[in-house]
């Protein structure tokens, strides 16, 4: 095929530009024209792979220089901020990421909630350290007495991938805003997960389509849990959270009701802090159950966050 595609370049013209293309030596319009041709041309253009394959060798020919160690912390912290920015942007295009200052103010979880229902989330989030803020603020969560920012950043990055990948899928589906409340609850969990010795738990339902959630257990045994897709409770019904340690005996953590279907947020304390403990959720006819009523709504096993 030698005819121009869409009024663009011919195959011969494109072949002629293969070397400067792989070297990045075309102006932006030319780069786009070549890309456009390659994307739509039925003819093979092996010259691009042939010439392009040498480019990594050029890169390898430069003197090897180690980046400063602090760059990794900056990167992971910026990734965390990037995530927070996406959540804080109400589904709008993610703003460009600026490197968060190491001296960021103490914990401030994004609390932007365009259409809050019931208790204002800011107030409800207070126990785990959220500071109410009238604006969608993106601030790196940071504990004033926590581990170093580097340690924190690495730990948080491990947990963040959950939310990032989740947020990614949501973004792709254009549904970020509908999940925002859950993401905000998750940001509170991230705060806990960033501490030394914390555990994270993924809760899933048996089979397809049940409630799922995410929890973090701090080194001191506090648990922060966010669940989604929970059916509403009726009458005296409550959801009860349980922890099952090595002895296999379910110990009640507390209960909560879900008035509007969807997301719920729960905190409790006194948990054992070894990896391997299991968190479970059951639906009970009333508060105060000492033995779980089956079936289990959702459960997961704790793993080290770091």
């Amino acid at each position: 095929m030698t005819d121009p595609i869409d009024g663009g370049m011919t195959c011969d013209e494109v072949r002629d530009l293969a070397a400067p293309f792989v070297l990045g030596a075309l102006d932006p319009d030319e780069m786009d024209a070549v890309r456009g041709h390659l994307a739509s041309c039925a003819e093979p253009h092996p010259e691009f792979a042939e010439l392009g394959s040498v480019v990594p060798v050029l890169a390898a020919s430069v003197p090897q220089v180690e980046p400063p160690p602090a760059l990794k912390d900056r990167l992971l912290a910026a990734a965390a901020a990037d995530l927070a920015a996406r959540r804080g942007a109400s589904g709008a295009t993610a703003p460009s990421v600026s490197v968060p200052s190491v001296a960021a103010p103490p914990v401030s979880v994004p609390v932007a909630t365009p259409t809050p229902v019931g208790t204002p989330p800011a107030a409800a989030l207070t126990p785990i350290g959220a500071v109410p803020d009238p604006e969608p603020v993106v601030v790196m969560p940071r504990r004033s007495t926590g581990p170093s920012v580097g340690t924190w950043a690495m730990r948080i990055a491990a947990v963040l991938a959950i939310v990032v990948l989740g947020g990614w899928n949501l973004l792709l589906q254009g549904q970020l805003s509908t999940a925002q409340s859950y993401e905000q609850a998750v940001s509170a969990i991230l705060d806990v997960a960033g501490q030394d010795g914390s555990l994270t738990v993924l809760l899933t339902a048996e089979g397809d389509g049940g409630p799922t959630g995410l929890a973090a257990v701090s080194a001191s045994g506090d648990v922060t849990l966010a669940m989604r897709d929970l059916p509403v409770t009726t009458g005296t019904q409550v959801y009860q959270a349980w922890v099952i340690a090595a002895d296999g005996v379910p110990v009640p953590l507390g209960d909560f009701q879900v008035m509007s279907p969807g997301t719920a947020f729960f905190t409790g304390d006194g948990l054992p802090t070894e990896p391997g403990i299991v968190l479970a959720l059951t639906l009970e006819p009333g508060p105060g159950a000492t033995v779980p009523t089956l079936p289990i709504v959702s459960l997961g096993t704790a793993t080290a966050a770091g």
């Binding site: 809050p116 019931g118 989030l125 507390g254 209960d255 509007s260 719920a264 947020f265 409790g268």
Partner: peptide
Amino acid sequence: TIRPLPLR
């Protein structure tokens, strides 16, 4: 600290 939090 049991804290039901009905959100959207």
